[in-house]
Nucleic acid binder design. Structure first.
Length: 507
RNA sequence: GAUCUCGUAGCUCAGCUGGUAGAGCAUCUCCCUUUUAAGGAGAGGGUCCUGGGUUCGAGUCCCAGCGGGAUCACCA
């Protein structure tokens, strides 16, 4: 603990003073709370005063205005803020005025958590407030909160002294949550988004499952893993980069629809779109193909937008994104042709390198044909796709787990949804031919030997499972963090994660 | 990993061409029984991120480091 500043020393003394007065600064018992700040403000009318004659609230003191023998306090609970009117002669009715003069005025501070009982009334300036009859301390705070003030005028709300330093906001998220109510709102929206998706998946009759995070072989995606060690077995384990191969094993086992909201871990760069651990929902449905999945993901995401915003139109930065079905659909080659004028569908590796070079795209020597196409798409198409767009039919080289396209074996039955210039999900008709799968993974091994650090590794146990037969299946992974960013108009992934990864403060 | 940029009171920030550190809010003392950035009078509070250097003198200029942010690269 660093040295205490003046304000913290004073608060520590106040705690001791409370104890000396026989007041427990951290009591256990709380009276039954029967009201919330926002509910009172939304529903209170002078006419039904009687229903508000005995309210009990608890929350944090956010500001105090002491006007001699009466005071106004702003109390914040999970729902919002309400004013308290604290009158000396009400809370200290007898001769002894110390409950007001000493306890309330001297020993309470901004940030302290209190419980109040009282009745609701309307002040002379027309504001709804709780006239406090009883006031108790529930928790004394020793560190002062940043004091953020809001003033609401006809032009709108101005915030003074806002707590805005991103470093402090992320490192001390609890403070951020206390003083920046709109931050709490983002995480409530995130929870609602997940809940809406789970409700839909449940209605479809799919099974929510859990699969290993510690995996002996990392698979199902292309990325560098985090590595760890299990002492008892003396084996190397990896934190999963994906759960795809485990969910497919469950489809082989006979479930016809499984999903998992999964934390995945990728040991790669960090940016406003990347955190080392992130959340995806992966869903696998037997006896369906990628065309069916396109329809379902449109329905699912549209439902999320409606649940969060009451409309399919969602503001994001300077854009208004409309999730109304159906979305635009392009094949990858169509998209490249549309944005660059080049038809790359029949080009060989050398020709593709020439095209990439013309656009000033740097292509590493070890990249194969599929990756070059992906680079061109990522550079010349993806950033321009703002409205949700389904991109289909990716080259087979870059999709080692996807089934070959029914009309063209050089392509796969794969699609991604691009929105706000970023991929938000990835889906394909799953490859279920064990021999083809084995060959494709072996090609990945060759790429790895060429120096591609993200090439997939061969999972022999998964290949063994496939030989028992996986029905025709479609799978999808939806990036929950990125979808939340769009749905909450957040510019950085750090704003939709409670505790984003940070460098340790004291190395 | 590269480039740019920031780090001053509990919070938000000012501090010019180098000259002993400033404001508002918060804190402390006093006044005030319907205020709302309440008001009035007064007071205290600083390792100017850290370490070097230049200088008679560094918050300010230079170098290195630590931490943050933005952009780029890799990726979802």
């Amino acid at each position: 603990m660093h040295e205490l500043n003046e304000q913290a020393i004073i608060r520590t003394q106040k705690k001791a003073q409370l104890e000396a007065m026989g007041i427990n600064p951290y009591p256990a018992f709380v009276h039954p709370i029967n009201a919330k700040a926002a509910t009172i403000l939304a529903h209170y009318k002078e006419a039904d005063k009687a229903n508000y004659s005995h309210v009990v609230l608890a929350g944090r003191i956010m500001s105090r205005r002491i006007i001699g023998a009466a005071s106004f306090v702003e109390l914040q609970d999970a729902s919002g803020r309400i004013q308290l009117y604290v009158q000396r002669d009400t809370i200290s009715p007898g001769e002894d005025k110390s409950h007001y003069n000493t306890f309330f005025k001297k020993l309470l501070d901004i940030g302290d958590i209190i419980e109040v009982q009282g009745f609701v009334f309307t002040t002379q300036v027309g504001a709804i407030a709780v006239h406090v009859t009883h006031l108790r301390l529930l928790t004394k705070t020793l560190t002062p909160l940043p004091v953020v003030k809001e003033v609401t005028t006809q032009e709108g709300t101005t915030v003074h002294d806002a707590f805005t330093d991103p470093e402090q906001r992320y490192r001390q998220r609890y403070v951020d949550l206390i003083v920046n109510p709109e931050v709490r709102k983002v995480f409530e929206q995130r929870a609602k988004l997940i809940h809406t998706m789970k409700a839909s998946l449940h209605r479809q009759g799919y099974l929510e499952v859990e699969t290993p995070i510690l995996q002996p072989i990392y698979g199902g995606a292309s990325a560098r893993p985090f590595t760890t060690h299990h002492h008892a077995l003396d084996i190397r384990l990896y934190l999963r980069i994906s759960n795809e191969l485990y969910l497919k094993r469950l489809i082989i086992g006979g479930y016809e629809g499984v999903y998992e909201f999964a934390k995945d871990f990728r040991n790669e760069g960090m940016s406003r779109f990347h955190n080392p651990e992130f959340t995806q929902v992966e869903l696998y449905v037997a006896y369906k193909d990628y065309l069916w999945m396109m329809d379902y993901v449109e329905e699912l995401v549209e439902e999320v937008a409606l649940a969060l915003h009451g409309t399919t139109k969602v503001p994001f930065g300077s854009h208004l994104i409309n999730f109304k079905r159906p979305w635009k659909r392009f094949t990858m080659f169509e998209a490249i042709h549309h944005f660059t004028g080049y038809d790359v569908s029949d080009m060989d590796e050398a020709a593709l390198r020439t095209v990439a070079h013309q656009f000033g795209i740097h292509i590493a020597d070890n990249l194969a044909k599929g990756k070059i196409i992906d680079e061109i798409f990522g550079e010349k198409c993806e950033p321009y796709l703002i409205q949700p767009t389904i991109i289909t039919d990716y080259p087979v080289e870059m999709s080692p787990l996807a089934k070959r396209h029914r009309d063209n074996p050089a392509l796969t039955e794969r699609f991604e949804v691009i929105c706000a210039g970023k991929e938000i999900c990835n889906a394909f008709s799953e490859l279920n031919d064990p021999i083809d799968q084995q060959q494709r993974l072996e090609e990945q091994r060759t790429l790895g030997e060429r120096g591609d650090e993200e090439a997939m590794v061969v999972d022999h146990d998964f290949l063994k499972a496939l030989r028992y037969g996986m029905p025709p299946t479609v799978g999808i992974g939806i990036g929950i963090d990125r979808l939340t960013m769009i749905m909450t108009n957040s510019n950085s992934i750090q704003d939709v994660l409670f505790f984003p990864q940070m460098r340790p403060e004291h190395p």
